[in-house]
Amino acid sequence: MTRLIEIEDLAVSFRTDRGEVEALSGVSLHLDEGEVLGVVGESGCGKSLTALAIMGLVPSPPGRITRGRIAFAGRDLLGLDEAAMTRIRGEQIAMIFQEPMSALNPVFTVGEQVAEVLRVHEGLGRTAARERAAQLLARVGIPDPARRLGQYPHELSGGLRQRVMIAAALACRPKLLIADEPTTALDVTIQAQILALLADLQREFGMATMLITHDLGVVAQVVTRVVVMYAGKVVEEGPVEAVFERPSHPYTAALMRSIPALAEGVSRLPAIPGTVPAPGAWPRGCRFAPRCTHAVPECGAGVPPLYPVAPGHHAACIRHAA
């Protein structure tokens, strides 16, 4: 398979009241063409920021990419000017968000917004764009698309809005779709609809997908490979079966033990003690060490790199140092 995107040692900082705070510190990950990658982590771990960095949308100021490289289909994204990046965003990489309401413009109809993407990036005329928009809405499972085209975002339910976002994202058949918690705001029956739709479209269009979520159930059901992030670092990556069967970083393992869905029959959940550290308050050395039951003094010595556990499966824990 060919590499579609390769991120190396990406670091992002934010200027705050308390000085420069690093929010992402040396993240490396990759995604092959047609692959479905899950990025898992809790709030503040940097998973959404990684996506924004790929999109060239890190808010700046106060944000700043301090080092690293993002190569997309062989091109260095961080070196591109705004015009080139805008073209990439529309045509090659598309993104959908947790709350489609904030990504859709409330004063334009759904049809106008989907058609605009087509007119700008595909150069379609007014009528052609409208027809194609209707087709897209039908394709993402919106009933009665001709009528929906004339409606405003607030007239649609959360599930339908997310379908509209997906239609707009797919309008130009991107090579990469970044989905940032696309189902978190939805009810579970609607979530299942959207996940099925995404899987369906992924098969049909063959695009690579980067699915960002905190929901281990969604990850297990949808992705082929998973990256686990904690406190601005990747702590584990590997094929989804391997990571779920043999979680090799203590954080991944503890996270899986602590969710009620996997703790069937126990009266007390094996919780992870402590709190998720905020950017700027990260401990020295391994950032999970203060909450880790396996921690030893050496954990504080330095940030552990990703050690191989099995082919394609890595974990950033010194217990795996050869």
């Binding site: 339910s157 339908l160 579970v188 299942a192 159930g217 297990a220 059901q221 079966e241 869905a261």
Partner: peptide
Amino acid sequence: RALLAAVPQPKPGAPPPVPLAGEV
């Protein structure tokens, strides 16, 4: 039944979530 079937299980290889058609 539909509600329970729609929950994605955090086990790769488990039966996939079954969507319930339509909206509330």
